[in-house]
């Protein structure tokens, strides 16, 4: 597995999409910092971080989609899909290695923001509650990756078209924006990730019925994990999809 993961890293190390998603990823943080510098602001979790959290929630699904789609689409763009899956290694292992690299790349991108946030608060307000902020941030990132990445991988394998998958990512972002404040938003995993995490920062923003929200939200998130996982494995192991 290490060899497969190392190979996947080698495939993307000169890809320009890495820089593109990095820029997309840091835009929310940059905007909030610029706003803070220009207009002054409240360097607290409820002020600065809350604003960033809201903005990053909208960008994160697209970052995940773009990154996962680009990693998988590398094979279609280079025409190497057939060679990749018939190289003699286990196809689920090949697929898992590629997904691992894609998700790790998103985690690294998220870590860039996290480092920025920590540095900001250490400079502006060291007593702001960095642990609580970190927990909320990584809860958002973790649930978003878990619920979106597998679906994006599946869409890329089925459509072989990175534009379609990125449009899906934009649609998911819009849906997150529209429904994030709704009481039933736990039905949409990215909204669930947002409300769950932001509730750690601003308790008023949490779900009114937390028990129901957790039960349904985690169940839906698990479905968004399991169903695409099974579908992905079906696609890459069925020979007729090798064409």
């Amino acid at each position: 597995m290490r060899t497969l993961i190392a190979n996947e890293l080698r495939k993307i190390r000169r890809e320009r999409f890495v820089w593109a998603v990095l820029v997309l990823n840091v835009v929310p943080f940059a905007m909030v910092v610029v706003n803070h510098v220009v207009n002054g602001g409240d360097p607290t979790l409820e002020g600065f971080y809350f604003t960033f959290h809201n903005q990053y929630t909208m960008v994160l699904p697209l970052v995940v989609c773009a990154t996962v789609a680009a990693c998988f689409h590398t094979e279609f763009r280079n025409g190497t899909y057939f060679e990749w899956l018939t190289c003699g290694r286990s196809r689920p292992a090949l697929w898992a290695a590629k997904l691992t690299v894609a998700c790790c790349l998103v985690v690294v991108l998220a870590a860039v923001n996290h480092v920025g946030l920590v540095l900001f608060f250490l400079a502006e307000n060291p007593d702001a509650g960095l642990l609580r902020m970190s927990a909320a941030y990584w809860l958002l990132v973790g649930v978003s990756i878990a619920s979106v990445a597998l679906l994006c991988a599946l869409l890329t394998l089925l459509t072989r078209n990175v534009v379609i998958v990125n449009v899906f990512g934009i649609g998911l972002t819009v849906a997150t924006l529209v429904f994030m404040a709704a009481d039933f938003s736990y039905l949409i995993p990215t909204c669930f990730a947002y409300r769950l995490s932001v509730g750690m920062i601003v308790p008023d923003a949490a779900y009114p019925d937390l028990g129901l929200a957790l039960a349904v939200g985690w169940s839906v998130t698990a479905l968004f994990l399991l169903l695409p996982l099974l579908a992905n494995l079906l696609v890459i192991t069925r020979r007729r999809y090798l064409r």
Binding site: K11, R14, R77, T80
Partner: peptide
């Protein structure tokens, strides 16, 4: 056709 990774 000979398919390889263009960036490598």
């Amino acid at each position: 056709y000979p398919a390889f990774y263009g960036g490598l």
